[in-house]
Amino acid sequence: MRQVRCDIRYVSLVDLRDRWGGGFDVVLSDPPLRIRGGDEGPEQGSMLSNALYSHKYRTMSLVEHADLNLEVLSSRGFFFLWSLKSLEDYARRCLRKYGYQYLRTLSWVKMLPKSGKVHNGHGYYFQHAHEILLVGCKGDVNEQVVSFLTKVSSDAIFGAAHEASAKPSAVHEFIEEAFPSSRKLELFARSTRPGWYSLGDQLSLWAQCYSCDFCETEIEVTEVRWKKKVGETKDLCNSCFVRQKCSEEDYFQIENAEDAEDAVLHEYTSCDCCKVESIQGVRFSCSECPDFDLCEGCFDERDELHSIGVTKHPPSHAFRAVNEYHPVSYCW
Rank of each mutant, 00 (worst) to 15 (best):
A257C: 11
A318V: 13
F284A: 00
S270V: 03
P327A: 14
S153K: 08
Y90R: 04
W20A: 02
L81Y: 07
V4A: 06
Y268L: 02
V146K: 01
R9P: 04
H306A: 15
V118L: 12
E304R: 09
Q280R: 15
E218Y: 08
F292I: 09
T233Q: 01
R104K: 11
G121D: 05
D140M: 10
V328R: 15
C237S: 03
S147H: 10
W20T: 02
D300H: 15
G77A: 00
V14I: 10
A257G: 03
D25Y: 14
V264P: 00
A91G: 01
Y251F: 15
L70K: 03
N120C: 09
S74H: 04
A129F: 14
K110C: 02
S191R: 04
C286R: 02
F241Y: 13
Y124P: 04
L62V: 02
R92G: 07
R243L: 04
E267N: 11
F299E: 00
D235E: 13
A178Q: 12
W196H: 00
S169D: 13
I279N: 00
D18P: 02
R190A: 03
I254Q: 09
L95Q: 13
K117A: 11
D30P: 08
P290C: 14
S198N: 01
L205W: 00
H122A: 14
P290V: 15
E304F: 15
S75T: 12
W82H: 10
F252D: 05
G22A: 10
P180D: 14
S165D: 05
E88S: 05
H65G: 07
S247Y: 06
S316D: 13
T105H: 07
V63E: 11
V282C: 07
F214I: 10
T222R: 15
G41R: 15
R183T: 07
K228Q: 12
S165W: 00
P31V: 03
C209N: 09
Y10I: 07
